[in-house]
């Protein structure tokens, strides 16, 4: 706990210094990334990178073993017609599906990520959240995607939110912790920045934009603001933190623009699934169609790409 207290002190110092964020300025910066023109070999390299960074996700009340199995197969066989494609980075499921997912992707290098902490609302007692997390880890989850308590954050109980993240981190053991800020509920970029700093100092390995259940989700403005928090932390401590935009990134173009942003803000070191992920369910096929178009020269139809 002492360690946490030290970290908290540092965060509080840092939080007091969390820079203001001007939204219009962020929009202008983001627009510049979007004017980048990615062509030819760069495009192909970027698309393959994007595929390899996907956390293929299913987070529905109606999820079944059957659905998860199919998705796990797709995660390892994105489009077998095209040889040499990478697999995705991970599959992302509810805790109850971790075991089956783990079995299905065994030996493939694809990780299993589990949401936890009463995803998506996070409205549960801390003990329940810890149990939720421990369960997922015990079932074999390599990564934990937790949600922060947005209500507490918005009512100014930063210490509560900080402690909660730190305790979930403890509960994770060896699993890497992604902290979901649910930026759509934080409303302002100032809050996004503050929450990013908070999560990083509390022990997040990754910070993640959204659950996918709330709109707006991973806008480039939000992701940019979080990347700047990661950058400032790295410049100060030399410690890398990962980034996962999730929700709303469904086209290759948007994925490439996100990669452009990561490259220009954080540098190429972050351009690996060790440090950057896309939380997405339909992005993979759009990327695959783009790759096929580049390979064959003809525009593609979704009829030719499996939808697991």
């Amino acid at each position: 706990m002492k360690k946490n207290q030290d970290k908290k002190n540092r965060f509080q110092l840092e939080y007091l210094n969390s820079p203001a964020v001007d939204k219009v300025g962020v929009e202008e910066r983001v627009a510049r990334f979007q004017t980048r023109s990615i062509k030819d070999a760069s495009k192909m390299q970027g698309l393959k990178m994007a595929l390899n960074m996907i956390d293929l996700t299913t987070l529905e009340g109606k999820d079944t073993h059957g659905k998860v199995k199919q998705m796990c197969y797709k995660a390892q066989h994105l489009h077998d017609v095209l040889p040499g494609l990478p697999s995705v980075a991970a599959v992302c499921v509810y805790p109850s599906m971790v075991k089956i997912a783990k079995k299905e992707v065994a030996g493939s290098g694809v990780n299993v990520a589990s949401v936890s902490t009463a995803f998506p609302s996070g409205q549960a007692p801390l003990e329940v959240k810890i149990t939720d997390t421990k369960f997922a880890v015990d079932e074999g989850a390599d990564e934990i995607d937790m949600v922060i308590s947005r209500g507490k954050f918005l009512s100014g109980e930063y210490n509560y939110v900080f402690d909660e993240i730190a305790m979930i981190k403890e509960a994770c053991g060896k699993a890497r912790l992604k902290v979901i800020l649910e930026t759509g509920e934080l409303a302002t970029l100032d809050n996004v920045r503050k929450a990013s700093d908070l999560a990083i100092y509390a022990g997040a390995d990754f910070i993640k934009t959204s659950t996918g259940k709330i709109q707006p989700a991973a806008t480039m403005q939000v992701t940019y603001t979080m990347l700047m928090a990661i950058k400032d932390y790295y410049d100060k401590t030399g410690i890398m933190i990962g980034m996962k935009p999730a929700g709303g990134i469904s086209t290759s173009k948007l994925a490439l623009h996100n990669l452009v942003m990561v490259k220009e803000v954080l540098g190429s070191a972050w351009l690996t699934n060790e440090w950057f992920r896309f939380g997405a369910s339909s992005l993979a096929n759009d990327v695959l169609m783009q790759i096929m178009k580049a390979e064959t020269g003809v525009y593609q139809s979704s009829d030719y790409f499996s939808i697991d």
Partner: peptide, 16 residues
């Protein structure tokens, strides 16, 4: 804390 692994950095340059 994130463990920094030795992952080779692949540069991604923009084609003309």
């Amino acid at each position: 804390m994130a463990t920094k692994k030795n992952i080779p950095v692949v540069e991604w340059e923009y084609a003309p």
